[in-house]
């Protein structure tokens, strides 16, 4: 699938492929033309992706080819053992977790998981966790604390699941508990928005020493669509809502609500998962190293002070 603003780039890219094919079959020297076209593609990509509107970023964050949490985990770890269940109700497939190893470093990974095809999407409940998902996440984070391993959470959710049973089992309480407990975790916690960061459902695993966003993701209190439906009483104002919400990585960094941005390959993470995962891995290892120079209480205090300073008032 192609997004509207990806089409001109794809057109040029297929033209380039044709040209190369032609060169192979005949003796015509097209190397200059190839070079020119490659430069043109590079420039077009740069221009397109530097000037995306906020709504276009939202579309990229939901790109059907975009790498999901487990794609990244399998790409960056040498070994990974998935762990299941909240030990109370069931195993929430929308929230995954487990110990992984990068070199000598063991890390607890926790994150929301979306599905690639219809069947998988249903299994993963579109990345929308139930309360047991948040409780599973907390169980795994405590396990990491027990064995003194750092925690990395990967966030990609359109929201916590707004279902009947989710309410019965205390969706609000589950998220609230995670916020409070995550502040007190003695091990380093790094939280990365890799896709969608919708509201409490995202924040429920996003209290950390370093909260980072990948370049083409969004993070806010509500999705542009829902915001449009509430404030404009229509679904048609999602572009305006996206602008008003200031939900991109750049916006969030400018407003001091996150600690940094992780670069994606030109064209977005889905165009080259190896490059995207490489950046992710490098960033994770760098921050773990830095955070481990502090003692647990220093980390906890800094974590609390950071969130404590968020807010603007007269």
């Amino acid at each position: 699938m192609q997004l509207e603003f990806e089409k001109p780039i794809h057109e040029l890219e297929s033209k380039l492929a044709d040209m190369k094919e032609l060169a192979k079959q005949s003796d015509v020297d097209v190397s200059d033309a190839v070079k020119q076209l490659e430069a043109k593609i590079k420039l077009l990509k740069k221009e397109t992706f530097e000037n995306l509107t906020r709504w276009q970023r939202v579309q990229l964050s939901r790109h059907p080819d975009r790498p999901y949490t487990l794609d990244y985990i399998y790409e960056i770890t040498d070994e990974f053992i998935e762990l299941h269940g909240d030990r109370t109700v069931r195993d929430d497939k929308a929230m995954i977790g487990g110990f992984g190893k990068i070199g000598n470093q063991t890390i607890m990974f926790v994150g929301q998981q979306k599905g690639r095809n219809t069947k998988d999407r249903q299994l993963r409940n579109f990345g929308m966790s139930n309360p047991e998902g948040y409780r599973k996440a907390l169980r795994l984070m405590r396990l990491a604390e027990k064995f003194n391993k750092p925690i990395v959470t990967l966030i990609d959710t359109p929201g916590a699941y707004p279902g009947l049973e989710a309410e019965e089992r205390g969706q609000g309480e589950a998220i609230a508990r995670n916020l409070l407990e995550m502040f007190m975790l003695k091990v380093p916690v790094i939280c990365i928005i890799v896709g969608e960061g919708a509201s409490g459902g995202a924040l429920g695993i996003a209290i950390g020493d370093q909260v980072l966003m990948m370049e083409n993701t969004w993070y806010s209190v509500i999705s542009p669509e829902s915001c449009s439906s509430i404030l404009w009483r229509s679904w048609d104002y999602k572009e305006q809502a996206a602008e008003a919400l200031k939900l991109t990585a750049k916006d969030m960094l400018r407003n001091k609500l996150i600690d940094g941005i992780i670069k994606e390959p030109a064209g977005g993470a889905h165009t080259d998962i190896k490059v995207a995962a490489g950046e992710l891995k490098k960033t994770i290892l760098k921050h773990i190293k830095e955070l481990e120079t502090k003692n647990p209480r220093e980390r906890i205090n800094a974590r609390m002070e950071k969130f404590g300073s968020m807010g603007v008032y007269n």
């Binding site: 407990e181 993070y219 919400l245 939900l247 916006d251 974590r303 969130f307």
Partner: peptide
Amino acid sequence: GARMMEAGISLMQLGKTSAKLALLSE
């Protein structure tokens, strides 16, 4: 719930208040 007109900032108030409650509990 959270105030939409402060978007990401209002979301972080959930974190801010929970941090204080963690200290109160401690």
